[in-house]
């Protein structure tokens, strides 16, 4: 059991940090602009593909920096020429715009890079074993993921708390109209925040594309989970996104790692494995784990719509 717990915490943190890389950008965008960007995971995907293509010529390390910048630029274009136009019609069309955009990006990625996963890999040095815990090897790459996430969190925190630009963003997160009244160019701030959020997702993609598989389906699979993190953490709250990412990462990993079902633990009590309650009684924890985030999403929205750290409701 100790093994399982230690293991769940470590791997959950690892998975959680990847979730955080994606959701931190989304929570900024959501909190500030009220736009729940359905295409956010698509920018994550673009990050992976850009890094793969750039990496072929520049090598991984340069691609690690260039790819998020390229994704950020794409994000800026989308905000400037797409979202801003739709903004006047209200939040629902904005949401629908990003919904359609996600489809288009996925198709374009499949068009240019093909439907087969691309062979996007970490540099050879990072595939060597860094340490071994309970007989399982952990590569330097996993350590690197943690490192990137920590640097990202600290960087974000410093940016938001200690710089002037961060102060404006902070202010715009809670009182966008007031910031505009104070003479700041709110549309420009919006474009920059959107681009920055996309770049963060792109960075997540650079790393996540290696950890998982880089294929056109990666956005579609990650998308809903990222929403869950943002809602659970609280809209616009970066620390909230971090905590929620870790909670979901650890909880999901734990459910997957244990061998548990009500029937096995308490006894079958002659309940047959059929009918609604019977099936639930016999349901293994591993089978529940993937729907856990959505259960959390619904429960959060019912009982605490502002999330763990959020200051205001959606």
């Amino acid at each position: 059991m100790l093994e399982t717990i230690a293991y769940s915490i470590f791997n959950g943190v690892l998975y959680g940090t990847l979730l955080f890389m994606m959701s931190s950008g989304l929570t900024l965008i959501f909190g500030m602009m009220g736009v729940l960007n359905f295409a956010h995971a698509s920018f994550y995907m673009l990050g992976a593909y850009f890094a793969y293509t750039l990496g072929l010529t520049t090598g991984f390390w340069l691609a690690l920096i260039l790819a998020p910048i390229a994704v950020g630029a794409m994000g800026a274009l989308v905000e400037r020429y797409g979202l801003r136009r739709v903004h006047q019609y209200g939040h629902v069309p904005e949401l629908l715009f990003t919904f359609g955009l996600a489809y288009v990006i996925e198709e374009l990625v499949a068009l240019f890079w093909g439907t087969v996963p691309v062979p996007y890999k970490a540099p050879a040095v990072m595939n060597t074993t860094a340490f071994t815990m309970f007989d399982l090897d952990y590569s330097w790459f996993k350590v690197f993921i943690l490192l990137v996430a920590v640097v990202m969190f600290v960087g974000l925190w410093l940016l938001l708390m200690k710089t002037r630009a961060g102060q404006v963003i902070q202010a715009a997160l809670s009182r966008p109209d007031m910031v505009g009244a104070l003479g700041h160019n709110v549309p420009l701030v919006f474009t920059l925040v959107f681009a920055f959020g996309c770049a963060l997702a792109g960075l997540g993609g650079v790393v996540g594309g290696i950890q998982f598989v880089t294929d056109p389906g990666m956005a579609f699979m990650m998308g809903p989970i990222v929403f869950v993190v943002v809602v659970l953490g609280g809209l616009g709250s970066v620390p909230g996104a971090l905590v929620a990412s870790l909670i979901i990462g650890i909880l999901q990993t734990f459910f997957l790692s244990i061998n548990f079902s009500l029937a096995e633990t308490i006894g079958t009590l002659n309940i047959e494995d059929s009918g609604f309650f019977g099936v639930l009684w016999h349901m293994e924890a591993t089978r529940i784990a993937p729907v856990l985030p959505f259960l959390l999403l619904v429960l959060t929205l019912i009982f605490r719509p502002r999330g763990i750290f959020g200051k205001r409701e959606a």
Binding site: N11, L14, Y15, L136, F212, T253, N259, E284, T286, R287
Partner: peptide
């Protein structure tokens, strides 16, 4: 173990089991 189709991104928990 049974896992859902096409929804698991991180298989390391299964590997640990």
């Amino acid at each position: 173990v049974l896992h859902p189709v096409g929804k698991v991104r991180d298989f390391s928990p299964y590997v640990s089991r």
